[in-house]
Design a protein around this nucleic acid. Structure first.
Lengths: 191, 191
DNA sequence: TAATTTTCGTACACCGTGTTGATTTATTAT
DNA sequence: ATAATAAATCAACACGGTGTACGAAAATTA
């Protein structure tokens, strides 16, 4: 075969998929290694050959997701020169819409919302930089505060959107977010 | 003694304090009933007389916190007639500043941030109502979206504030939050 | 086909769990 | 104070998942 570790990859993928599946039913704390392996049809010893415990497994899954997220996001960001925070928001919402299945698990009742929050928070850095470019005279504290607020708001919208089944289009939410972060409460006086 | 259950209350309080203390060192998942009782100087059987497991204990602690939070917040809210969302924010920040010790544990590395988020989210309801009062012509969707965004933003500021050791005054953060939710990005053009 | 690597199967000691029943200690009521 | 009541203690137990080990079986590579 091409890949010398093809077999391991298959096994790992099976364990990952099984864990994600179990996470739609119950919290991580009540998922045992034994149960996980029985569901995956794997020997328990095989699990321990790759992971220390279920938390370790989830951590590795999340690390990979994070890598994929930024790998997918970066090209989206780099092809635009004047990248205002609202535009970043739109890109991120599109990214979520693409990976809807995964998002639903993470944001679900037994998912790791904290992980999602951290992803968004780490995206903050580039926004702070672009903000500085557009408002060179603004104090550092103001910029940081504004971006923090605005990212928190966007995350809240995302969470609601995912929780309610993504019935609206990503673009619609992104538009609303953009208008609020641009003009605040004036958003309620429109139309 | 006055209270017929004085002894139980003392025991429960001891268990609670011990758990909160342990939560500053390690995550809940690696805190065992055995360890908790050893630290509290109590018999393990005593624990099981009151709680099912450590998760049950934390749930009860959080339920009480929630009750206290709203008990403290309601009088703050009721003594003002024209309660705009920004004013609610100010009140909540004051409330957090008062209970700084507790907040630090919850928002800390092993705390339950999700619990904090839920508290804030539940405060949203009264804000939606007051928003409707001030903007009777706005569509329901717009109001809900705006309040969701704005609460997410406030929560993000709170989290940052707590994480950075509450060095700034609550009023300062509340002012910033107020201005952003009022006029959006214009916040960066001030001063 | 032979060599290598991964998975399987089994067994084992270990530890925390949750429960039990009897005993001791503290609180309440008389 | 003393008896009655309730809670905390103590020791013991079966149970289940953990993490590890090692040889056998199966799959992959050369």
């Amino acid at each position: 075969m091409k890949n010398p570790e093809h077999r391991i990859r298959t096994t790992k993928k099976l364990l990952r998929d099984t864990l994600m599946s179990l996470l739609t039913e119950k919290p991580l704390r009540s998922i045992t290694v034994k149960e996980l392996c029985e569901n995956a049809g794997l020997n328990r010893g095989t699990f321990y050959a790759h992971y220390a415990d279920v938390y370790d497994l989830l951590e590795q899954i999340e690390a990979d997701m994070k890598a994929e997220y930024f790998a997918a996001l970066k090209p989206m960001l780099s092809d635009v020169a004047d990248l205002t925070p609202p535009k970043v928001t739109k890109k991120v919402f599109d990214c979520l819409e693409t990976n809807a299945d995964l998002c639903r698990v993470i944001i679900g009742p037994y998912g790791d919302r904290e992980f999602a929050r951290n992803l968004i928070r780490e995206s903050k850095i580039c926004s702070i930089e672009s903000c500085r470019k557009f408002f060179p005279d603004a104090e550092e504290w103001r910029i940081n505060t504004y971006v923090t607020f605005v990212y928190g708001g966007c995350y809240a919208l995302m969470e609601r959107w995912l929780r309610e089944g993504m019935v609206e289009r990503a673009a619609a939410i992104a538009d609303a977010a953009e208008k609020i972060m641009e003009s605040g409460v004036a958003f309620l006086r429109q139309e």
